[in-house]
Simulated scan of single mutants.
Amino acid sequence: MLLGQVAGKVWATKKSPALTGQTFLTVEVGETTLVCADCVGAGEGERVLIATGGAARVAAGEHIPVDAAIVGIIDP
Rank of each mutant, 00 (worst) to 15 (best):
M1N: 09
L2Q: 01
L2S: 07
L2A: 05
L2D: 05
L3R: 13
L3H: 06
L3G: 08
L3C: 08
G4Y: 08
G4M: 01
G4Q: 01
Q5V: 04
V6K: 12
A7L: 06
A7G: 13
A7Q: 03
A7P: 08
G8Y: 01
G8F: 00
K9D: 15
K9C: 15
K9Q: 13
V10M: 02
V10C: 00
A12R: 12
A12C: 12
T13C: 01
T13F: 00
K14W: 10
K14I: 09
K14L: 12
K14H: 15
K14P: 08
K15H: 14
K15W: 03
S16K: 11
S16R: 06
P17R: 02
A18N: 12
L19G: 11
L19P: 09
L19Q: 02
L19K: 11
L19S: 03
T20A: 01
G21L: 04
G21W: 07
Q22Y: 06
T23R: 14
T23L: 12
F24A: 08
F24H: 03
L25A: 07
L25S: 14
T26Q: 13
T26E: 14
E28D: 14
E28M: 11
E28L: 07
V29I: 05
V29S: 08
V29T: 07
V29E: 08
V29W: 00
G30K: 02
E31A: 11
E31Y: 13
T32D: 14
T32P: 04
T32C: 06
T33M: 05
T33E: 11
T33I: 13
T33H: 09
V35W: 06
A37G: 04
A37H: 10
A37Y: 00
A37Q: 04
D38T: 11
D38G: 12
C39R: 15
V40I: 06
V40N: 10
V40F: 06
V40T: 05
V40P: 03
G41W: 06
G41K: 10
G41Q: 04
A42D: 12
A42K: 00
G43E: 13
E44M: 13
G45R: 12
G45M: 04
E46G: 15
E46L: 13
E46F: 10
I50M: 07
A51E: 11
T52H: 08
T52D: 10
T52R: 15
T52A: 07
G53T: 07
G53K: 06
A56Q: 01
R57N: 10
R57H: 03
V58E: 03
V58R: 02
V58Q: 03
A59V: 11
A59K: 11
A59N: 05
A60E: 03
A60G: 09
A60D: 04
H63W: 05
H63Y: 08
H63L: 09
I64K: 09
I64W: 02
P65V: 06
P65Q: 01
V66T: 07
V66P: 03
V66N: 02
D67P: 05
A68K: 02
A68R: 05
A69W: 00
I70L: 08
I70W: 02
I70P: 09
V71Q: 03
V71T: 14
V71I: 12
V71D: 01
G72D: 02
I73Q: 02
I74W: 05
I74T: 14
I74D: 12
D75N: 13
P76N: 07
